[in-house]
């Protein structure tokens, strides 16, 4: 799936601004961005539900929205849409009919999302989590090559979120390509191979999760600090070591060292420090979270797009 400068304009507002992304076969692609960044609009264009104002997209080698492309795509976009008066099973039967599939596919899909026991109950009576799961079940009908799931964990409780994530991981393990949009970094960090980050309608980065987060660092607190610095420089080289005022944000005590080294250096470094008579107070490897990387990328300019900064949140709560 690729898009080339895909654009959607509503009046004066650019909802999606020249987004060029590519999803490879078999991967779990995370589409990350704050609410209102243009994720759903992009996905709707890829499904042919709305027409792009500009740019082009190819899905499974076909134009988006054509029956032959949609036959190989399963999608859950912006919440599940079903007939409230029908049972979950009947809703899936209707959708299976639309695809020209046999009723047997319905049972398999219900089973896949653990809804077999509640299949006879009316959709209206479902909890939000069950509705979302039914939406995923209808996306699974016909065993599609590409799954497009728009915020599938939106509105779910923690247990429901965990279930949904493990379901997505299972699906990907089965070889299906999954495009998953989310505003939750943890989610994307946990289950996606590659990530496209969208903010205010623009794709600001596209890369693997590891690349986006960057290399990990080792933080060290030790006494005396100058001796520790000398040992660290000897082990890791002069350029890899940096003195910082605080090694952890939540504690006011003591400065320390920040070493741009692979975490595998920790045992050797610790031995050297101890051998030289340094008191090691704390040593740990730290990975930058995707969240930090995300805020760095999107910068203050796009904060208005929906992510409150901690300071703003504080001011609102006052």
């Amino acid at each position: 799936m690729t898009t080339d400068r895909l654009t959607k304009r509503y009046g004066d507002r650019l909802a999606v601004d020249a987004v060029s992304l590519s999803v490879r076969r078999g991967e779990v692609y995370g589409f990350l961005g704050p609410n209102g960044a243009g994720k759903t609009t992009t996905l709707r264009m890829l499904l042919g539900l709305i027409r792009p104002t500009g740019g082009r997209a190819t899905v499974l080698g076909m134009a988006p929205g054509t029956p032959s492309a949609l036959a190989r795509i399963g999608a859950l976009v912006e919440g599940p849409g079903f007939y409230p008066y029908l049972s979950g099973r009947y809703n899936l039967r209707v959708m299976a009919h639309y695809q020209g599939l046999a009723d047997s596919s319905v049972d398999a899909a219900l089973d896949r999302v653990d809804l077999t026991g509640r299949g006879r109950d009316k959709f209206r009576s479902y909890s939000l989590g069950m509705k979302q799961r039914l939406g995923v079940a209808s996306a699974l009908l016909g065993d599609p090559d590409l799954l497009i799931l728009d915020e599938p964990t939106n509105g779910l409780d923690p247990a429901g979120m965990a279930d949904m994530r493990s379901l997505v991981v299972d699906l990907a393990a089965g070889g299906q390509t999954v495009v998953l949009s989310s505003h939750l970094m943890v989610e994307v960090q946990e289950i996606c191979d590659r990530v496209g980050v969208i903010a205010a309608g623009r794709l600001v980065a596209e890369s693997t999760v590891a690349d986006l987060r960057g290399a990990s660092v080792v933080l060290l607190r030790a006494e005396p600090l100058d001796l520790a610095l000398a040992v660290a420089m000897r082990v890791g080289g002069d350029d890899a070591v940096e003195v910082v005022d605080r090694v952890r944000a939540d504690a006011p005590y003591g400065g320390g060292l920040r070493l741009s080294l692979d975490p595998s250096v920790v045992p050797a470094l610790t031995r050297e420090l101890v051998a030289d008579g340094v008191n090691v107070l704390e040593i740990r490897a730290v990975e930058r979270s995707l969240e930090e990387a995300f805020f760095e990328m999107t910068g203050p300019g796009v904060r208005n797009a929906g992510i409150p900064t901690p300071l703003e949140t504080l001011e609102v709560s006052r």
Binding site: G48, P67, A71, F82, Y98
Partner: peptide, 18 residues
Amino acid sequence: GWGTWKTVLTQGPGRVAA
């Protein structure tokens, strides 16, 4: 309102057929 048009159209019958 129910969102069923959206779900139906993503099943791929094509708009005219649906």
